[in-house]
Computed example of a mutant assay.
Amino acid sequence: MSIYIGLGGWGDHDSLYSKGTKSTDRLSVYTKHFEIVEIDSTFYAIQSPERMRQWMAQTPPHFKFIVKAYQGMTGHQRGSSDVASKREEMFAAFLAMIQPLIEHDRLICVLFQYPPWFDCMTKHVMVLRATKKLMNNIPCALEFRHQSWFRDEMRAKTIQFMKDEQWIHSVCDEPQAGDGSIPMIIESTNETLTMVRLHGRNESGWNDTGDDKWREVRYLYDYSEQQLAEWLPRLEQLSQGSEDVFVIFNNNSGGHAAHNAKQLMILLGQQRPDGKHPMEALPQSVEQLELF
């Protein structure tokens, strides 16, 4: 049983990089700190297989990727008239994109994060079943953004559905801010792996307030060491149900994700992939930033 720590993307974490580090060099530098990463850009556009090969070439053979499903595949493009008609075409292009990762055993799973309006209804259960079939036997993680899936008696039914359909549970740490957030449920649904995504706990900034910059505010949060320590028994519990647990810090807005991830690595007694102490050689630490 292993616990792996990583971040959402590699471009936004300035504390990992020396001044002047080129954007094209950031991924290779990132791999000195972490062994996994979640690719977020695939949510906004399906990339080419060649782009996947480029990213693989910039990383060591043991380094692996979680790939976020394209927004058209998860229904985020609400109101677009041609999304439904192009559903199979989108899935085919996405599968072609990740094929190099699969061939070289560099794919952890594909993350399907559904929008807040994807609530617990029969038609949405059917969407999940159809999606799983389209993805064949590729490992797929499932993350909801509507509390109805876990409210009252639906909680046990949703977990059992995920087990039956072989969905990987994406366990979330996020603020409880109404229907558009889900509770933290420490339960594995897949014997091979479980995902954990820490989004921060910025309750006031979680929901869309109409401000164009609300997305920048949503993930603005710095976990305390005590809050991170509370995850140790939770990760141990998840490890009892899955061979591997993959933890992604997504509290990127204020630059806290990398520091929090390294704090958790220390609590778990882990080293960096290059064998160094997790906090070693940070160009600018969070503690230094807080002095001014």
Results as ranks from 00 to 15, higher is better:
residue 120 C to K: 11
residue 61 P to G: 04
residue 102 I to W: 05
residue 142 L to T: 09
residue 76 H to V: 12
residue 210 G to R: 01
residue 10 W to G: 00
residue 44 Y to G: 01
residue 278 P to A: 10
residue 202 N to R: 06
residue 67 V to K: 05
residue 231 W to A: 03
residue 29 V to I: 14
residue 189 T to K: 07
residue 244 D to R: 10
residue 253 S to E: 11
residue 253 S to F: 03
residue 273 P to W: 04
residue 235 L to K: 06
residue 193 L to W: 04
residue 109 C to K: 02
residue 242 S to M: 03
residue 88 E to P: 12
residue 230 E to I: 09
residue 119 D to C: 04
residue 167 W to G: 00
residue 208 D to Q: 11
residue 83 V to D: 02
residue 118 F to R: 05
residue 4 Y to S: 09
residue 204 S to C: 14
residue 187 E to V: 06
residue 103 E to W: 01
residue 97 M to H: 00
residue 153 E to I: 14
residue 15 S to Y: 12
residue 220 L to N: 15
residue 82 D to H: 07
residue 217 V to P: 07
residue 85 S to Y: 15
residue 48 S to W: 14
residue 117 W to L: 11
residue 9 G to M: 03
residue 104 H to P: 00
residue 40 D to V: 03
residue 4 Y to I: 02
residue 247 V to L: 08
residue 109 C to N: 00
residue 221 Y to I: 10
residue 277 H to S: 14
residue 27 L to M: 06
residue 49 P to M: 01
residue 145 R to D: 09
residue 32 K to P: 03
residue 203 E to I: 15
residue 70 Y to P: 08
residue 142 L to S: 10
residue 105 D to I: 02
residue 283 P to K: 06
residue 83 V to Y: 10
residue 245 V to N: 09
residue 23 S to N: 15
residue 25 D to E: 14
residue 153 E to D: 13
residue 92 A to D: 14
residue 3 I to A: 01
residue 183 P to A: 03
residue 223 Y to C: 05
residue 92 A to C: 09
residue 56 M to S: 03
residue 224 S to R: 04
residue 170 S to L: 02
residue 241 G to K: 07
residue 270 Q to N: 07
residue 51 R to C: 00
residue 106 R to G: 05
residue 221 Y to C: 10
residue 1 M to W: 12
residue 155 R to L: 13
residue 163 K to Q: 09
residue 220 L to C: 11
residue 6 G to V: 05
residue 180 G to W: 03
residue 190 N to V: 05
residue 288 Q to K: 13
residue 107 L to Y: 08
residue 240 Q to T: 08
residue 200 G to N: 00
residue 209 T to V: 15
residue 20 G to L: 04
residue 112 F to E: 04
residue 209 T to G: 15
residue 56 M to Q: 12
residue 220 L to R: 15
residue 245 V to W: 11
residue 6 G to C: 13
residue 242 S to K: 12
residue 122 T to H: 12
residue 229 A to W: 06
residue 156 A to D: 02
residue 230 E to C: 11
residue 123 K to H: 10
residue 46 I to A: 08
residue 252 N to H: 14
residue 86 K to S: 11
residue 202 N to I: 00
residue 69 A to N: 05
residue 251 N to C: 04
residue 257 A to F: 00
residue 7 L to C: 01
residue 38 E to W: 02
residue 219 Y to T: 08
residue 44 Y to S: 07
residue 290 E to K: 14
residue 214 W to P: 12
residue 32 K to M: 13
residue 173 D to F: 07
residue 267 L to N: 01
residue 16 L to V: 01
residue 153 E to K: 14
residue 11 G to N: 15
residue 237 Q to G: 08
residue 103 E to R: 08
residue 63 F to C: 00
residue 94 F to L: 01
residue 285 S to K: 09
residue 62 H to E: 14
residue 127 V to I: 14
residue 63 F to W: 03
residue 41 S to N: 09
residue 189 T to H: 04
